[in-house]
Nucleic acid binder design. Structure first.
Length: 919
RNA sequence: AGGCCCGUAGCUCAGUUGGUUAGAGCGCUUCCUUGACACGGAAGAGGUCGAUGGUUCGAGUCCAUUCGGGCCUACCA
């Protein structure tokens, strides 16, 4: 049956089909292997996208890299598990649903907690799968049977368990502290969820009258409205200016409250006036100072950052209005000394951009130091490797300065904190399941804490909770620690650090199945509690102008649009090819356009192959890619008879080696470009052209059959080599090669090509390079002599080396065809001086064509060439006559330079004589 | 305040431990619709590697200084 491929490559049609096929056939589902499994294991946890999210370029890059590595490992025979899932994204999801409710004129509080949560679930069922659906379109080869959601019952159960354990170990505590508070979201947020931004503000200097004197003490502040909550003024003990005021009191303006002047290191004599107002309820430093001096904490704002009754006449104003009013009042009372321009670092809520308010409130915290200690050790000891390496320094730096983590959120959507308060005696009980009565007073009037946990608290547990923890499971023995985590720099602290802390803590004492650990080459690792062996931090995807993509700037590139325009394979290839370490990716669709052309090239090469296959060797299929041949290297069954056969086989094996080394080092860019250069620049541009005569109509049947067999085998192996990067087009053509009867369900299950050293043939590569050089020289001369494209011209060739001459003789037909040459005459002496001739160190070639050459242009070209040659000769001579160089440089470098020097001399003589000739 | 990254062809980027002639894609110029492919083929032009100094037999690569661009971390009002 003839193979029919449409003339032009249409990614849309084939991609949707195979994406669906892979899922339907459950090709990437992994059952828990029984004891005795001996394959190496590769486990990867998908960084769970938000249920609220849409796929963006960062995901696309991340998923491309993961899928490349996952498919690569799977094809290499690893037991490969890629675990997908989504994150409930507490604040973000709640915001989405509240916004939706607002359109219906409803409010969360009016609905009540239960009804609201039900509504969120409904929303989640409806929209929550967006990114995962998009992932399916990308061909991400995840195990869909193991898909998780952070609010699933089993994962929620694990979260409660973790909370209780940490509480019982004294690593979770509850207390009243200053936290970052978002007045819009109405919840506490962690340090990491605050984005700092330098904003042009004012530094206000305010006079406070010192009681019992006529003096004033002037304090400086950027937030005058908080003075309403001042409970002291601090000066530095060593500051002579204020020594006489120690122990005195000031009358707080506007509030007429007597507050003490205290001495505290909080006051820096170098800054402002050296005196600082102390507002323990509204500033973290002041809070600490307040504790040191036993100061009252007067909270002057409510949860929406409106002034409350403690703010006296200002009650009811929002914080911005209150500032204006306070400043106005101070000014009119003559107490405002100065307003200086000042750059203030303003903290904003990462989620909604509202200015964060440091707020005194009762929250739950994780005592982080003991957890951080282990997390630092495992990275320092290399139990977890962070790639690129400089990120581990950033990680350690952060870890060493870490603060306790506020984990409670005043939200409804999320894992509710498993703590109950007794209405009778106020006793706080933390338990896995709701207690029926108070452990202290036996009252049954118990209320569960209304707060939920930070979303990252649950995602930090995923490496083990997705594998069945807190049960001890076979899955954990096999798949934990996961092999690799690929993620964005932004969540190094949010997520990566927390997974390491939790993993080390809760999986302490865990051991991976020793046989599998050894098979996976992790035998040297001592610690199996870590959540992953390696972390690869990927680059940031920016727009073509290197701007960070953001919705507000409107420069967001939608990957789905790119995919629809150029195809998934081309988009994946772009991202892989641009994934070089250390640099962000400036995503430019023109690049993707180029890789779509690459896909088209592959497509048309396939059409060429099928055209010949159907004619020359109908029914032929390469039998060597099935699981039965997993161990073969190189290309099985390839009959390397001619130079081009030996050459391409050698090149293929070397490229396979390069790709292996590149992927092994996370050099997706090198892997992608190696394949690109091989397939287009060598396979299509040269090999296919060279074998055409053997396949042609009049050719010997047996020769044609062998050539065709080689072509198909080579093509099939190349598809396998490319498959991890371009899964769709490779699957389509691979399936077509087997004409509906493939040895495996998918190319994704075939084995990945590995290099066979016996198929590497350096002599063939050298010979081929000479031949290519000759052909390019002739083409070049033709262009210069303006020989009509179609006209076949005779050439003369001189080669001093008989081996070179023999090489050209043996491949005369190839030269004639590819350079459009009528005949080749072998000259007995140098042709270099002739007009219309070119020379290299190995041969001279002359195109016999009567049209005179452009003498001036030719002279200019030769002069330039001569200059370059002489410069290089001078360079080489300087080095070769330098004894230091001869003594210190490695032998192969010296040898190479000597060989080159000889060549250069030949070249110089030829070029010089020709130049003289043209005078 | 501290730390990190980048500066190579018009554009976007490679260039692994210093070693022979600094590469690719896109764009550009000229020619060609030849039976796989114009999303193609052939040939070509284009770079004193941000600047200065140093180490070295040898520097795009290492060191120092400097200029320009970006990012992150930080409780100094």
């Amino acid at each position: 049956m003839p193979h029919e491929l449409p003339k032009a490559y249409e990614p849309g049609a084939i991609e949707a089909h195979w994406a669906e096929y892979w899922i339907k056939e459950k090709l990437f589902s992994v059952k828990t292997p029984p004891p005795g499994e001996s394959r190496p294991v590769f486990t990867l946890l998908l960084p769970p996208p938000n249920v609220t999210g849409r796929l963006h370029m960062g995901h696309m890059l991340n998923q491309t890299q993961m899928d490349v590595l996952v498919r690569w490992h799977r094809m290499r025979g690893f037991l490969t598990l890629w675990l997908p899932g989504t994150d409930h994204a507490g604040i973000a999801t709640q915001m989405m649903v509240e916004r939706q409710l607002a359109k219906e004129g409803k409010k969360r509080r009016d609905m009540g907690r239960e009804a609201f949560i039900e509504r969120v679930w409904e929303w989640k069922r409806h929209y929550g799968g967006a990114i995962l659906d998009q992932m399916k379109r990308l061909g991400a080869s995840v195990d869909w049977d193991r898909e998780y959601f952070t609010m699933d019952e089993n994962l929620s159960h694990a979260v409660r368990d973790v909370f209780v354990r940490l509480y019982e170990e004294g690593l979770i505590y509850r207390g009243k502290y200053i936290v970052n508070w978002c007045p819009r979201c109405g919840t506490a947020i962690s340090d990491l969820e605050v984005k700092h931004e330098d904003v042009q503000g004012k530094l206000y200097e305010i006079r406070y009258p010192v009681m019992g004197t006529n003096e004033f003490i002037t304090v400086a502040t950027t937030r005058p409205e908080t003075m309403l909550g001042d409970t002291a003024v601090a000066v530095n003990e060593k500051d002579e200016r204020y020594r006489h005021l120690h122990g005195k009191k000031v009358l707080l303006p506007l509030m007429n409250r007597e507050i003490p002047i205290i001495t505290d290191e909080l006051a820096n004599p170098e800054f402002g006036t050296g005196a600082v107002k102390v507002t323990p309820a509204h500033d973290p430093n002041d809070f600490q100072a307040g504790l040191r001096h036993n100061l009252p904490q007067i909270d002057v704002m409510d949860e929406h950052a409106h002034m409350n009754q403690n703010a006296g006449p200002y009650a009811g104003l929002d914080r911005h209005a209150a500032r204006e009013q306070v400043v106005h009042d101070l000014r009119s009372q003559g107490l405002l000394v100065a307003e200086k321009d000042y750059t203030v670092p303003l903290g904003k809520c990462d989620r909604c951009g509202t200015v964060v308010e440091p707020r005194l409130s009762t929250q739950w915290f994780v005592k982080i130091a003991p957890l951080a200690k282990r997390a630092i050790e495992v990275v320092e000891a290399g139990e977890v490797t962070i790639i690129p390496e400089n990120y581990s320094q950033i990680y350690l730096n952060w870890m060493n300065n870490i603060h306790d983590w506020c984990i409670s959120r005043q939200l409804w959507w999320g894992h509710r904190i498993p703590a109950w308060r007794c209405a009778g005696c106020n006793e706080m009980m933390v338990a896995r399941e709701a207690p029926s009565k108070c452990t202290k007073c036996a009252s049954s009037q118990l209320e569960q804490d209304t707060d939920v946990l930070d979303t990252w608290f649950s995602s930090g547990l995923l490496p083990f909770t997705t594998l069945g923890w807190p049960q001890k499971t076979r899955d954990q023995e096999v798949f934990y620690p996961t092999t690799l985590l690929i993620t964005a720099y932004e969540i190094l602290f949010f997520w990566v650090a927390r997974m390491i802390m939790f993993g080390c803590h809760f999986m302490d004492g865990h051991h991976q199945d020793p046989a599998l650990k050894a098979a996976s080459c992790w035998g040297g690792k001592k610690d199996d509690s870590v959540p992953f062996r390696r972390v690869y931090i990927h680059a940031l995807v920016r727009d073509a102008e290197r701007q960070k993509m953001s919705k507000t700037k409107g420069n967001v590139v939608d990957p789905i649009e790119v995919i629809e325009k150029y195809g998934t394979d081309a988009t994946r290839f772009t991202l892989a090819a641009m994934s070089s370490p250390g640099t962000d990716i400036a995503f430019n669709p023109s690049r993707t356009d180029g890789y779509r052309a690459f896909a088209n090239k592959i497509w048309n090469a396939a059409r060429f192959m099928f055209m010949n296959l159907d004619r020359v060797a109908p029914g032929f299929t390469p039998g060597a890619s099935g699981s039965e041949t997993r161990t073969h290297t190189g290309i099985a069954g390839f009959e390397a008879n001619s130079l081009e056969d030996r050459w391409i086989l050698s090149r293929f094996n070397r490229v396979a080696q390069q790709v292996h080394e590149s992927l092994d080092a996370y050099r997706f860019d090198n892997a992608a470009t190696s394949i690109y250069d091989f397939f287009w620049g060598e396979f299509c541009d040269w090999y296919i052209e060279l074998i055409k005569p053997r396949l042609a109509d009049g050719a010997d049947k047996e020769t044609a059959r062998i050539a065709c067999g080689n072509l198909v085998r080579l093509f099939e192996a190349s598809l396998r080599l490319l498959h991890p990067v371009m899964p769709f087009i490779t699957e389509e053509i691979w399936q077509a090669i087997y004409d509906g009867k493939p040895p495996l369900k998918s190319i994704a299950l075939a084995c990945y090509p590995t290099a066979d050293q016996h198929q590497v043939d350096l002599q063939a590569e050298t010979d081929m390079a000479i031949l290519q050089d000759l052909i390019v020289s002739v083409r070049n001369l033709r262009a210069e002599l303006k020989v009509e494209q179609k006209l076949r011209v005779p050439i003369q060739v001189f080669a001093e080396d008989t081996a070179v001459r023999a090489l050209i003789e043996h491949n005369q037909g190839a030269v004639e065809r590819l350079a459009n040459v009528q005949s080749i005459e072998f000259a007995r002496g140098s042709l270099a001086k002739l007009p219309g001739a070119r020379h290299t160190a190995r041969f001279d070639v002359h195109v016999v064509y009567e049209k005179p050459i452009d003498v001036l242009a030719e002279r200019a070209r030769l002069a330039k060439e001569l200059e370059r040659i002489e410069k290089e000769i001078a360079n080489g001579q300087r080095q070769l006559s330098n004894e230091q160089f001869l003594a210190k440089a490695p032998a192969d470098v010296v040898e190479g330079l000597r060989r080159r020097a000889k060549e250069l001399e030949v070249l110089r003589d030829k070029t010089k004589s020709k130049l003289d000739q043209l005078k």
